[in-house]
Amino acid sequence: MSVPTVPRRIRSIPYLLLAPALIVIVGVLGYPLATLVQISFQKYGLAELLKGSGSWTGLSHYTDIVGDSFFWGVVGRTIVFTAVNVALTVGAGTLIALLMRKAHRAVRLTATVALVAVWATPGLVAIAVWQWMFDYEFGVVNWLLTKLGAGDFTHHNWFENPVQGLGVVTAVIVWGAVPFVAISLHAALTQVPDEVVEAAELDGAGRLQVFRYVILPVIRPVLALLTLLQIIWDFQVFNQVWVMTGGAPTEGYYLIGVYSYVQSFGVGDYGSGAAVAVVMVLLLALVAFGYVRGLLRKEQTQ
């Protein structure tokens, strides 16, 4: 599909098309990104921020991080957390999108309204509502579980045990992210021709086969992108954990986003914060590049 059709003679066309995007992204982010990398090699606290210049410390921030066994524990926890969240989000989102394709118009509209309403809820409010639902004293969830006979959940604290607490955080995150995945995939699904699906079904293809051989090839680019984005976002989760633990997470709650805040940004150590950010990007890039390369290659061979 990447065969250049007309424009081989006009080489500048793709660059012209990309120019506006490049100008905005490089223009606004180029300098900040360079600064970020630069101060990750510097002693850069509040005093240096006020002066506008730090003093070089070489690799010390990086060796501190890499040498910190606690950090690697945090990375491990973050990877597990990310994997669970991404799997749930993308799985549920795909399921909803597929269901929407089949659904009656009115049902689809209902689903769309529910999804968009969730999506349009500002993070601050979403967290407040979920906090209520899982509240120790007044939570609907505790009340409901007790009523349903799941045991006595009166005064059950969901955040005492970090595994449970991160479970609630997962619910909040998946709930908030599913609409984006579902709606984007639903849009991608409109490109799947009904006739082909019907023909496949008439040929006796099962549901999974139809999905795998007919639908997946069409939505693959979008699905891949959504998965990648979810990985990137879930890897950086901070706010939900911070607010839902009342701003005092115990060590079992330390994801890499929390770690970087507590260790550096929250206390004004921008140099080491920048180093953590760079390490995060490198870790993510490890995952992403293999993945993207595979993706691009697959498209080229098709």
């Binding site: 990447s2 059709t5 793709p14 990309l18 940004f265 990007v281 890039a285 992403a288 993207v292 691009l296």
Partner: peptide
């Protein structure tokens, strides 16, 4: 441009927009 053209720097651009997504906004 990305979907219809093969050009030098394409991979670089793709890499760039991915990396940009990865940097935490707070940083």
């Amino acid at each position: 441009a990305l979907a219809r053209f093969e050009f030098t720097g394409r991979q670089l651009f793709v890499a760039m927009i991915l990396v940009v997504q990865m940097v935490p906004a707070g940083a």
